[in-house]
Design a protein around this nucleic acid. Structure first.
Length: 463
RNA sequence: GACCCCAUCGUCUAGCGGUUAGGACAUCACCCUUUCAAGGUGGAAACACGGGUUCGAUUCCCGUUGGGGUCGCCA
């Protein structure tokens, strides 16, 4: 059975790249009817924080990427990792290295100077510790093969080769006895029976070193797929200087999780001409053959476009729920009647918004008075002549028996004709007076939803 | 610096030896229109370069250039 994992280290926000990796792993498992698990790689206790774990879980929940098991914390498996390290040692596949960090650094410098890859030179590989090493600190290093080449079959990159002499003897246990990342991932992926690893291609070179660890333990090697990283607009690795990199920030920008997931899916993965791919369709289509080999740039504009699409297709009840919350945050509480109004107003509002914040703001015309909302552009429409004209129109409106947008629009058309005005010359001042803004859904729709009483009240109010 | 990876419109991508090189975002024009959106129609826009292989290369191979990644007792 297919089993994938997402293994973030909890040192900050849920990065967009990480979110995409999580999404791919989740989709791969779902597509193949397998399982998806979350492993928190918190072995660096200096940098790992409780808040970061929360942010990751929160982000995953938001994106709808539920895992099939409770999150596994790597730090809890430390004993197991050490056990494997010592097993390797007893099998003669690892050795104690007494070189100090300074000595190792010197080796690197020397190699660098010789134009070779900076690496540990294997000083203690065959050397037996003498009396001088008694009670001295040491690290446990893995005996990496020094000759031949390693070939891995990557689901995305294809066949990738590496000369083994380029690999140095990686540290398995630090001088304080704690396991390193390189050891822990391998042990955990094996113990958790992970069959497929989809991760950023910054891990590609690690794969060669991990390969030999699997071999040394006689373990089966999982399939790997290294996906190119997400870059910023300038082509560099996506980082803070490109703007928001945490999914939480996009949530706050009013992005719908469905849109975020769809956008992330299409960054580095494609299926013909399909652009709008909701979750169930994504599960149906996703596989590694659709993954691209070249890095892609993050484009906020396209994300926003997709958000608009999902916004328009979203259920009015759902959107009204989001908006209600956002309005409450700004201190605008809605009673039951207003909530119903909000939902009815949604079709007219959602086609005009590109994110939830805009949507919430546009809904204000129904809940705040024109005086409160009045902006400069709208004010310009409220000239003495226009106000006079609107007074006349108020009488026309009041005379209407039925109160719906069609009737009102026809009344406005007739009125405009009688006054020898274009409809726009009536509608725009009307909008300004009614909403305090120059942008809103159809004024006639606004009037219908506001109701006759409220509409006339606003129309006749002295600003 | 060494090693590894990548290279189609500005961006995301389709293409898997023979296509008028397709779609989407953005952009421009027009239409619709009470504003703003949405929508409709149309336009401009790409195979990085140089060698091969082949009857024929965007597609296969090599090199150049450009970009990215990795070289920790971080993960």
């Amino acid at each position: 059975m297919v089993r994938t994992r997402f293994a973030p280290s909890p040192t900050g926000m849920l990065h967009l790249g990480a979110a995409r990796t999580a999404l791919f792993n989740w989709l791969y498992a779902r597509h193949h009817g397998g399982e998806f698990v979350l492993r928190i790689e918190d072995t660096d206790r200096e940098r790992s924080t409780r808040e970061a774990v929360e942010a990751i879980l929160e982000g995953m929940r938001w994106l709808g990427l539920e895992s099939d098991q409770d999150p596994f914390f790597q730090s809890h498996a430390m004993l197991r990792h050490q056990e494997v390290a010592w097993e390797l040692y007893h099998k003669g596949m690892a050795y104690k290295c007494y070189a100090t960090p300074e000595e190792v650094e010197a080796m690197r410098e020397k190699a660098r100077a010789e134009g070779k890859p900076p690496r540990y030179n294997g000083l203690w590989r065959e050397k037996e510790p003498g009396a001088a090493q008694e009670n001295q600190p040491f690290v446990l290093r893995f005996k990496s093969p020094q000759t031949g080449e390693t070939v891995i079959q990557d689901l995305v990159q294809g066949e990738v080769k590496m000369q083994n002499e380029l690999l140095d003897d990686l540290v398995l246990l630090r001088s304080d006895g704690t396991p390193t990342y390189m050891l822990s991932v391998v042990v955990d992926d094996h113990d958790m029976e992970i069959t497929h690893i989809l991760r950023g291609d910054d891990h590609l070179t690690n794969t060669f070193r991990q390969y030999h660890l699997y071999q040394a333990m006689g373990w089966e090697i999982p399939q790997v797929a290294h996906i190119p990283l997400i870059h910023g607009q300038d082509g560099g690795k996506l980082s803070k200087r490109h703007g928001a990199v945490g999914v939480g920030a996009y949530r706050e920008m009013g992005i719908l999780p469905e849109a975020m997931a769809n956008y992330l899916l299409r960054l580095g993965w494609g299926h013909g001409d399909e652009e709008v791919i909701p979750q169930d369709r994504a599960i149906e289509l996703f596989d590694t053959d659709g993954l691209g080999k070249s890095p892609s740039r993050f484009d906020l504009t396209k994300l926003m476009h997709l958000n608009g699409i999902y916004l328009r297709e979203a259920h009015d009840t759902e959107l009204a729920g989001y908006v209600k919350e956002l309005l409450e945050k700004q201190g605008v509480a809605l009673d039951k009647g207003q909530q119903a109004l909000l939902e009815r107003a949604m079709p007219g509002l959602k086609v005009r918004a590109k994110d939830l914040n805009e949507l919430a703001d546009s809904a204000l015309v129904y809940f705040k008075s024109p005086i409160e909302l009045l902006d400069e552009k709208a004010e310009k429409f409220l000239t003495p002549e226009n106000l006079e004209m609107l007074e006349k129109f108020a009488n026309v409106a009041q005379a209407q028996e039925a109160w719906d947008h069609e009737v009102l629009e026809q009344a406005a058309r007739d009125f405009a004709e009688a006054e020898d005005l274009k409809l726009g010359k009536v509608a725009q001042p009307l909008r300004a007076k009614l909403t305090g803004r120059t942008i809103s859904p159809s004024v006639f729709e606004v009037m219908e939803l506001l109701g006759k009483e409220e509409s006339l009240k606003r129309l006749r109010a002295v600003l």
